[in-house]
């Protein structure tokens, strides 16, 4: 019976086609074509774009992974298609297929190739995380990978900014709006996110109420905004354009509406904007608490005398201590 089956199988016929070579040749052509199309045609349009260095790095990483995974997908599809076309059941062919046996060389090759791919991607991913200073992700209050000129203390961040230097932008999350404070430009706070082009940006992300997440999509920056935590993320602006900022952490009733648009402008435009905004907001800037990498709004140093004067506590005029009352 086995001999009959073997004899009835086209592949087993002496002098029959070399299916493995056929599949390999079809695969290599299609895989190469797919990779070229994906890299050069689709690649430039892969999110999140190239507005910032972190975004460009993420786009490159996405394209590398696509280029590596596409041949695998093509191989599976080629094999399936080939099998369906070449080894399909013919009219009148009622014979069993040939028995299958293990093929140690193919197994070893498969394990080796897939292991190399996975391990190389792991190494690549690690390299891509380190080299672009965290790849746009929040590194926490003590970032490991810092660009030259990064300012990690409140005092350093308040040094006047000059073009060509790292620009510190403090992102303050609060229900349901991000505000942005520019410590190196007088410390004003605004709802507008405006950035100069070709500048390394240091986002110091925090919150003064619940947990938010600062996601500047086109810049490739995403950092959790936690109360009491300074979460640092870096990117370098590379082109002029608009930035969509969204909160990426469910933060209450209007979380879905917590978004705004920022923009990357030329350095002179940025300086003009900063100058005019600083003047326009001067009356409220002087009311802001001293610049700090985090804020604890439950402790307002100079609020005590006001409340004492009024005899107000708790809901009548002050903040609730963090432990009281508990959430029902």
């Amino acid at each position: 019976m086995a001999a009959e089956t073997q004899a009835a199988t086209p592949a087993a016929k002496a002098g029959g086609p070399n299916h493995g070579l056929r599949i390999f040749l079809i695969w290599i052509v299609l895989a190469l074509a797919a990779d070229l199309v994906l890299w050069f045609v689709l690649g430039p349009h892969i999110p999140p774009g190239r507005l910032g260095s972190a975004a460009q790095g993420q786009q490159f990483d996405n394209n590398v992974m696509i280029a590596m995974s596409a041949p695998v997908l093509v191989l599976v599809l080629v094999y399936f298609t080939y099998a369906i076309v070449v080894w399909r059941r013919r009219p009148g062919d009622d014979a069993d297929g040939p028995p299958l046996h293990g093929h140690s060389r193919i197994q070893a090759l498969w394990i080796t190739v897939t292991s190399v791919m996975v391990l190389s991607l792991a190494a690549f991913g690690t390299y891509e995380l380190i080299v672009p200073y965290g790849a746009g992700g929040g590194e926490g209050p003590s970032p490991i990978w810092n660009p030259p000129g990064a300012e990690l203390t409140a005092a350093a961040q308040q040094r006047p900014w000059a073009p060509g230097h790292v620009l510190v932008v403090q992102v303050i999350g609060q229900q349901w709006r991000f505000t942005y404070r520019y410590p190196g430009l007088g410390g004003f706070e605004t709802t507008e996110l405006v950035l100069p082009v070709n500048t390394m940006i240091q986002f110091d992300v925090t919150s003064i109420d619940v947990i938010h997440s600062f996601w500047a999509y086109q810049l490739g920056v995403k950092a959790d905004a936690n109360p009491g935590v300074d979460n640092v993320a870096y990117t370098k602006t590379q082109h002029l354009g608009r930035v969509t900022v969204r909160c990426a952490e469910l933060c209450g009733l209007w979380h879905g509406a917590m978004f705004n648009y920022g923009k990357v402008v030329t350095v002179p435009q940025f300086q003009a904007w900063a100058s005019s905004t600083s003047v326009a907001l001067a009356d409220v800037t002087k009311l802001l608490p001293p610049y700090s990498t985090t804020y604890d709004p439950t402790e307002i140093a100079h609020l005590g005398p006001v409340l004492q004067k009024l005899g107000l506590t708790g809901a009548g005029g002050g903040y609730y201590p963090p432990q009281d009352p508990s959430q029902p």
Partner: peptide, 13 residues
């Protein structure tokens, strides 16, 4: 209603 301080004095503007 009575007074309560803003959590962020920026919103006093």
């Amino acid at each position: 209603d009575g007074c309560t301080p803003l959590r962020n004095p920026f919103w006093g503007k």
